[in-house]
Design a protein around this nucleic acid. Structure first.
Lengths: 208, 208
DNA sequence: ACCTGAACACCGTTCAAGT
DNA sequence: ACCTGAACACCGTTCAAGT
């Protein structure tokens, strides 16, 4: 009746994560969704962390990477950033599962990294600098995406808490256009890193 | 024998988190550290999420904010960023606990936000833009810190996994100076956002 | 008011047993 | 080879009971 395999398990697990959230993402819940005993899963998957990795990879494979057209490398990076943001916003629970189970690299993640680095290499920076820019920009941008989805899941703090912190309050009452903020951030990071790494001297030093 | 109070609980819980890690951060473990029954904690703390908030706040209070000297606003932001990075690197488990239990705002976090926004306001950007810069830069920088500490805890992928992904491999074999990378990132983000928000037209648009 | 022991409803995972 | 039921060692939390 079951005919389990890794692919079916991954799809079911992703569905469970989406529907029941990170807390409801359970070996038992995934087994239930497949109409199978929880222990059946262990025949195809090492442990829960491996199942989490499967889920992350399934989410990454849902949409193909943006086509590398003839646009500028900056636009290419921005397209990749938007692709990433759309992905995690579509599966907020998966980002939590990813962190909880320390799944940082999956097959598809390598492909994303390749593309990211290759775009930075088109910038004309030398190899080492392009790598540095790729690493730091990706940490900043993926970090911003994670923070955004996490905050989107949590509610707004109580007004009483915000009473004495005008900045934090302004931060929440401000009209927000998250997509525009994200574009601003990505382009600022990319331009800012390129500018700093282009001028050969005083790369990270404060005195310009 | 016990004489429990919230402050003692917070200190013990932070110690447990530091010593036993996020997985070992348990109501029972904290109670043990205090020589008390697990249920005693519930008399002073609503639930585990509230205890997690206590831990985050205790970590934040360990060191005072950097003194706001007469430096430039850019240096002030950089000092704050370093303060944050040092903090989370000293307590890597706490960042995980923070995420797991959705603790985003604690009393001390408001103080940090106030300072961050006020520094951006010294940049001369108008109020809305300063707020936008403060929000986006903080998401990027705190996100980068979280990613860095998470990756530091996890090991390097197996060489066999990296075989076919030259960029990812280069990324790991590259000589890294995390502190310098961090300074580069922070200053690039700050300068990049300021540059983009300073020129009134085409704020987030790609065509410069 | 503060603390405790026993218990409940969950987890991930092991293990012997079934086909 | 693949799946199962029962069991183990944990969780967070509730509840009645003690002082």
């Amino acid at each position: 009746m079951a005919e389990l395999d890794v692919e079916r398990i991954a799809a079911a697990a992703l569905a469970v994560a989406d529907e029941r959230g990170a807390a409801g993402f359970t070996m038992r819940a995934v087994a239930d969704a497949l109409g199978v005993s929880p222990m059946a899963l262990y025949h195809h998957v090492e442990d829960k962390a491996a199942l989490a990795a499967l889920v992350v990879d399934a989410a990454l494979n849902e949409h193909e990477l943006p086509a590398p057209s003839s646009q500028s490398w900056q636009d290419g990076l921005y397209d990749m950033a938007v692709w990433t943001r759309d992905l995690w916003r579509a599966h907020p629970a998966v980002t939590r599962i990813r962190n909880e189970h320390h799944v940082y690299w999956t097959p598809s993640m390598y492909a994303v990294a390749e593309r990211w680095v290759s775009l930075w290499q088109q910038s004309g920076l030398d190899f080492e600098d392009a790598l540095t820019a790729a690493v730091t920009s990706s940490m900043a941008i993926s970090g911003a995406v994670e923070t955004e989805t996490a905050l989107a899941e949590s509610g707004v703090p109580a007004a009483s808490d915000l009473k004495w912190t005008p900045s934090a309050r302004a931060l929440y009452t401000r009209e927000r256009d998250p997509a525009a903020d994200f574009e601003l951030l990505v382009r600022s990071v990319v331009d800012g890193l390129f500018a700093r790494l282009s001028q050969p001297a005083s790369r990270a030093s404060g005195d310009t």
